[in-house]
């Protein structure tokens, strides 16, 4: 978490740290590194190696396929809608939860966590039950010729649902730990509600917000389960990148599948890189807002 690098007074290492504890330390660190390499690094490298198995030419050819381009475009479109939406709603919900007392607050907290705790497949099915032709709103939607599932709106909705908690979950603990006194101070100093929000509340959480947005974006582009249920799998139309990867893989087009996978992985890596660069660039400011007085 971005805000966890709070400066804590480090306990002084006792002088009697002997060779035995040093050995334990080496073993533990070694195990952790081994684990990270095996679980995280190797699969990631494999993706890129497989993508390049038949050379750069074939790799770029894969991106020329209209269905692949359509999948990339759809994924970017879905993320471009879902991420700003979830950032705005997540910010509003966190603000309400952290700064105000109201009836049903715990219920709201539970609801925010819900997409994390239920399987994405269920999240997708919920929309089928709601908007499907046999669903509650199905007949009305059909009568008005509105297509939600098996079309772009359904994919956006499913993605929004699955990625909803990311921003709120980053913000709520931070906002709660920061308390409400800065806002109260601003209001007593004569600031309006909006002024207080934009000048005090928002700047205090901007790094957590950014981090939440980055995580939200990574998941929005990578979501498979929920989108798979509502997609309808129409090629060049309702396949997002993850779905398209599966299709290419099932068509024995392994280079194509891994080419798209490497693009997706590349986007995720870029996201992480952006976060790291920002943290490095603004390290001082982050420390200033994270530290409690």
């Amino acid at each position: 978490m971005a805000m966890s690098d709070r400066v804590l007074p480090l306990a002084h290492t006792p002088e009697r740290a002997n060779s035995e504890t040093a050995l334990t330390k080496v073993i533990l660190i070694g195990l952790a590194v081994l684990f990270l390499v095996a679980i995280l690094f190797l699969p990631l490298v494999t993706v890129f190696i497989e993508a390049l198995r038949k050379g750069w030419g074939t790799l770029f050819e894969s991106f020329g396929d209209p269905d692949t381009l359509a999948a990339i475009r759809l994924t970017l479109l879905v993320a471009a809608i879902a991420v700003p939406f979830n950032a705005a709603i997540g910010l509003a919900a966190s603000w309400a939860i952290a700064k105000f007392e109201f009836r049903g607050k715990n219920l709201l907290l539970t609801l925010i966590d819900l997409p994390f705790s239920i399987s994405p497949v269920i999240s997708g099915l919920v929309y089928v039950l709601l908007f499907g032709a046999q669903g509650w709103l199905g007949p009305w939607l059909q009568a008005h010729d509105i297509q939600i599932i098996f079309a772009v709106p359904g994919i956006v909705l499913a993605t929004v649902l699955v990625t909803f908690p990311f921003v709120a979950r980053e913000l709520i603990p931070l906002m709660q730990s920061q308390g409400t006194s800065e806002e109260e101070a601003a209001l007593l100093l004569g600031a309006s509600g909006w002024h207080t929000f934009f000048k005090v509340t928002l700047p205090n959480v901007k790094w957590a917000l950014l981090y939440g947005v980055l995580l939200c974006n990574a998941r929005a582009m990578g979501e498979f389960g929920a989108v798979s249920v509502v997609s309808g799998h129409i090629r060049g139309l309702t396949n997002t990148m993850p779905l398209h990867i599966e299709i290419l893989y099932n068509e024995y087009n392994f280079v194509g599948a891994f080419a798209v996978a490497s693009l997706l992985a590349g986007l995720a890596l870029f996201t992480l890189l952006a976060k790291t660069v920002l943290e490095w660039r603004f390290a001082g400011e982050i420390a200033a807002t994270a530290r409690r007085h």
């Binding site: 800065e182 109260e184 209001l187 007593l188 004569g190 700047p203 205090n204 007085h293």
Partner: peptide, 20 residues
Amino acid sequence: SLRERRIGFVFQQYALFRHM
């Protein structure tokens, strides 16, 4: 309103705007 009251308030933990 809070603004019209014009109260000078010093909070226990000061509540300074930490990013300013």
